[in-house]
Write a protein that binds this DNA or RNA. Structure first.
Lengths: 107, 107
DNA sequence: GCAATGTGCTTGCGTTCGCAAGTAATATGT
DNA sequence: ACATATTACTTGCGAACGCAAGCACATTGC
């Protein structure tokens, strides 16, 4: 979904890593099999040869669309059906406070 | 701490696993090095030869006491100093609701 | 122009974990 | 009583992950 909403449906590996809150190596290792099954592909930047974009292919976009159906259904089942907007605001606020107050760098 | 507050400072491996929310194999593998450094030891039940208790040794009890100092300080730093009783009640309530509402078995 | 520094990425290594299968002991049903 | 099922534990295996090192390229400062 990060890729889907990114311009050109692509992100550099480090940028994707940041958004997924995982290390760069994890992105490298996640991308490989996804590339093999054709849902993403690799692109280089002509300006900066270091960059290796992860790009959603046409097939990948379809997969995301399919997945979103399930995702939305499940998320809706919990949050939309059982939680009010007020509940979610409260939970979100408390969790953000917890992250802010907790020691270490949880960002 | 689970062991510390258990009767005789000991628990069977599966019971400890449940309280720690990890699998039995994890307890087996955690116990081994702790045994090696002498903070826990192994005991058998004379009634049921399948049971293999994890027991806190004297040295283990001391370690727990030491650790609790840090633990209490850190926990206090976040929760006692920055959070009111009311905040904690709210967060706890919301998280329990989330667990209850979420799909799967998060117990 | 070029050395020093920084950035993006990959890979080897070690850690942690759960599952599934195997073993041993106990509980249950007839 | 004894076969079957259940329970407790261990271990092989594979998955996932981060760190540190290494490489290629880019940027900065002189």
């Amino acid at each position: 979904m990060h890729l889907e909403q990114a311009p050109l449906h692509r992100l550099s590996r480090v940028e994707l890593a940041k958004r997924m809150h995982v290390s760069a190596s994890t992105v490298t290792r996640m991308a490989a099999p996804l590339e093999k099954i054709g849902v993403v592909s690799r692109q280089t930047d002509e300006r900066d040869a270091r960059l290796a974009f992860v790009v959603l292919t046409e097939s990948g976009l379809e997969k995301v669309d399919e997945a979103r159906v399930t995702f939305t259904k499940q998320a809706g089942y919990v949050f939309r059906d059982r939680w009010t907007e007020e509940d979610l605001k409260q939970l979100s606020g408390l969790l953000h406070r917890l992250i802010a107050d907790a020691p270490g760098n949880l960002t």
